[in-house]
Design a protein around this nucleic acid. Sequence first.
DNA 1: CTGCCCGTTGACAGCGCTGTCTTTTGCCGA
DNA 2: TCGGCAAAAGACAGCGCTGTCAACGGGCAG
Lengths: 340, 340
Amino acid sequence: MTRKTIDDVAALAGVSIKTVSRVLNDEPSVRADTRRRVEEAMAALNYQPSLHARSLAGRRSSLVGLVYDNPSANYVFAVQSGAIARCRESKLRLFIQSCDGLDDRLIGEVLAMVDQTHVDGLVVTPPLSSNAELLEALRRRRLPFVLIAPDVPVAGAPSVVMDDRAAAREMTEYLLGLGHRHIGVIAGHPDHGSSRLREAGWRDALLAHGEQAGPDLVAQGYNTAASGREAAHALLAAAERPTALFACNDDMAAGAILAAHELGLVLPDQLSIAGFDDTELAGLIWPPLTTIHQPVYDMAYRATELLVQLVRGEEAPATTRLDHRLVVRASTGPPRSRLE
Amino acid sequence: MTRKTIDDVAALAGVSIKTVSRVLNDEPSVRADTRRRVEEAMAALNYQPSLHARSLAGRRSSLVGLVYDNPSANYVFAVQSGAIARCRESKLRLFIQSCDGLDDRLIGEVLAMVDQTHVDGLVVTPPLSSNAELLEALRRRRLPFVLIAPDVPVAGAPSVVMDDRAAAREMTEYLLGLGHRHIGVIAGHPDHGSSRLREAGWRDALLAHGEQAGPDLVAQGYNTAASGREAAHALLAAAERPTALFACNDDMAAGAILAAHELGLVLPDQLSIAGFDDTELAGLIWPPLTTIHQPVYDMAYRATELLVQLVRGEEAPATTRLDHRLVVRASTGPPRSRLE
DNA sequence: CTGCCCGTTGACAGCGCTGTCTTTTGCCGA
DNA sequence: TCGGCAAAAGACAGCGCTGTCAACGGGCAG
């Protein structure tokens, strides 16, 4: 059993291969009954057109690239899921390129992938979406691409973002509303654009309420649980201990909770801890984590949708902002002093 | 700037395109200095051969497929990472196919992907690696494939496995060694082959030590934290409460820990909880989870390596067994009765 | 010096499609 | 009935490579 080609279908349907091609590509000017005959022949032969032949002959590959660099498993998985879902709707295929450990060969590898596979466009996730050099190289290639959560907007490339700063401010205001006055922040990885925004949101809220936001309330983290734990220990060692900690992502919040447990602190009575992202993890730790829901799946879905538009030659909005949501769980509560 | 083709390289190097092709494919019978000239030309032009043209003209595509169906984010991420790492070494590309939500169209979609993209071979992860119908269809297509953790060995398809049963037994024996006598088990998803093996390992250990392994010590879970929590509540409601729980994966263990916290139980004094898989989660919850390290990344790496061998026409061992490891953390300890 | 062999290189067809251009068909009004 | 015209269908080249086979040249035995 040799593989079926367009010639087999054409022969069986009694038409030329070009007509089969037309049916395949949903082109007009094919009579309804001809179309039906062709479709029946395709079904009867279980015909599957060759991606490679189509890509070589035509200009498009029906392939969308997704590039990422070492963010967390949950993030990558959510992004992939969203992008795959949208691709399926348009009969596209997702081609995934991990840049993990590529370091300075990164740009070359991404471009090699782009050139070899002829992807029609690219979805770029953070932190690559803030890599100016990469983006510039993509632009020079005139390859359509969409950014997820870039640091700053890039001309000509639509972005899908959420309002990190407003969300962080919201979270901090929620903590202030509970009665906290000393709210420490565990900052995110300095190379990630969102880190600055989230820290800024925390500062916004404190200053708006006339509270201090001094350096003793800030500890640098690196988006990992280990760094969160360390940062939390540092913050909690201060003379005037914060009664609440806002970690700029859930992993660091989990690390902070570990630190709290190590110090024998009862959560949330003696210490409130909040995170950011609402990963799966947030609901699995104890106490369940108050956090900001970041709609990663939806952002990836939307980004892919925008890319589809670009590939078709349609316009796409420069910035698409999706809503976040404050998710209150059990890791936060009023400070003990107010209870006593 | 139009894209470079093999003709450009040939012209610059002053050879025929066939010679460039030979260099590209590491074929012998190219004189060293000719090879060098061609390589220099390729570098000078930044030439990237077209995947589609190569696949169409040759028989192979340099594409390896990876199929998965809804296991956890961590699992999928680890598998992808391992497979990508091995692919990179052989200059192959990984083509990912998610079967999430495909249900009965699953087999058709996988085969369509295989036929359209002409992947050279497939790495199949659980639970698909136990899908007899899918595997049979792949075999009929004479497509090389390697299974990760299949339920039962499949003739002609190498498998990469770990010894789930021995690992579960080891874990249970460790708990017995701590002094536990009533050890409950939260069984995994009934559709996953490993679930049975892990439960069997638990039973092996208990019976070998002359302990009961009655139905009141078994609760059905579905590999999710929510199901683990429910199962734990059920087990802990028994008249003679178990002093230790063995959850057949980490997510369910996390759910069980949630349940324990809800009941106000102090871990591990009043209750020990152990998991299986050693996902990232295990180190992030409180108390850190005692579990079995499953070498998912390594299994995927190895599976891809075996697939590369198969594609080359070499033999590959029917079964490759990788080592697990008992990872003791703080969620387990001697039962309280022994302390009193 | 001749012929043979092997290592090296090249000419050319064709992989399975799509783009372009041409031909055929069906349908309308006169 | 026929011309005219748009819609439908087909012929054909060629996308960028690899497989096949043929051509070339140099070393070496006879």
